[in-house]
Amino acid sequence: MTPRPWLHGFLDLCLLAMLRERPDYGYGLAQRLAAAGVADIPGGTLYPALLRLEQQGLASPSWGPSESGPRRKYYAITPAGLDALSAQADEWRGFRDGVDALIGEHVR
């Protein structure tokens, strides 16, 4: 799994990318991150990050029902979120290409 300091910089990007696909709630996002092989993210990191996105107006919350237990807080990406996503995605690609170039093809 990804070392935590790495993920820290790109967690918002990952969350926004998943929300662009479809609105989701915390547990679902944690599952999708784990399934994608990115990180097994602790709740103490995930939920503050979601609140941060909400506070910055990048994701908007709405309450939805659940089959079992209490209602869930679903997050949907906002237009500002989409802008932030594309900007961060560009940054990520630049960063990734840069690192790849440094590592080189022969290091595998």
Binding site: Y25, G26, Y27, A30, G43, G44, Y47, G69, P70, R71, R72, K73
Partner: peptide
């Protein structure tokens, strides 16, 4: 309230889940 519900999503005790 939200934080308690978040721990609930994971079927975990908040003390365990968040410290």
């Amino acid at each position: 309230v939200e934080t308690a519900a978040q721990a609930g999503e994971h079927a975990a005790d908040p003390d365990h889940f968040f410290g």
